[in-house]
């Protein structure tokens, strides 16, 4: 007999098991779901950060936010979790930046959990009503947990040192705004691709 080839060709003759078939099918569905979910999550978080920024600076509860307003705020990376101006000249900015992440990170994850909880698999979109209901239901627990963190008031609290604005961080027109932002980003990506080509 001849010596075998150094590199064996891949030859899939053993059929996948029922379990493997099922997991492969779910993996395929996940592949389609993942970009839609991640984009929605990113947009929802950006909207909440931007709207929360307005409410923190100048309280205007229940005021709708237009797409143009959102784009301005988003372009400037505005968020309600940020270093206050009083630290602008502070030498050790990293010290506070770490604390910033300590609150911004869990907040993003919490929003992610809420988006997942209010996701409709059938429609492949977030159910806004459910999302807002869950957010308001769980917000108290979130504030309670994180208000114990050092510098919470500095990083999240408003200029008078309280966080009541946190109950107004969801714009009343979230559904429409979300659709507009998703469409806007879709168009942006399309244009970028065309330019690249």
């Amino acid at each position: 007999m001849l010596p075998p080839c150094k590199t064996m060709p891949e030859l899939n003759l053993v059929k996948p098991t029922e379990y493997e078939k099922l997991m492969a099918q779910i993996k395929q569905e996940h592949k389609q779901f993942k970009p839609v979910f991640e984009t929605t999550l990113e947009v929802v978080t950006d909207i909440i950060f931007a709207y929360g920024h307005i409410q923190k600076k100048i309280p205007v509860p229940d005021r709708p936010m237009t797409l143009e307003e959102f784009l301005v705020l988003n372009k400037n990376n505005c968020s309600f979790i940020e270093l206050p101006a009083k630290y602008a000249d502070f030498d050790d900015k990293n010290f506070y930046a770490n604390y910033l992440n300590l609150i911004a990170g869990p907040f993003r994850r919490w929003i992610g959990k809420l988006v997942a909880e209010s996701w409709s698999w059938q429609d492949q979109r977030i159910l806004i009503k459910m999302f807002v209901r869950l957010l308001h239901k769980q917000l108290n627990y979130f504030i309670k947990d994180f208000s114990k963190e050092r510098f919470f008031s500095d990083l999240v609290g408003d200029y008078v040192g309280h966080s009541s604005y946190l109950f107004c961080i969801v714009p009343p027109n979230l559904k429409e705004l979300l659709e507009q932002v998703l469409e806007h980003r879709k168009q942006n990506t399309k244009t970028k691709k065309e330019v690249a080509e």
Binding site: L2, P4, T7, E10, L11, T17, Y19
Partner: peptide, 27 residues
């Protein structure tokens, strides 16, 4: 090519056609 070589070689004994990576088999 490797597979034809294996088929022809298999007239002299068990020849290796190729490999399959089988992950997470629960048999």
């Amino acid at each position: 090519e490797p597979i034809l070589k294996a088929v022809l070689d298999s007239f002299s004994g068990w020849a290796v056609l190729g490999v399959q990576k089988f992950e997470g088999c629960r048999c």
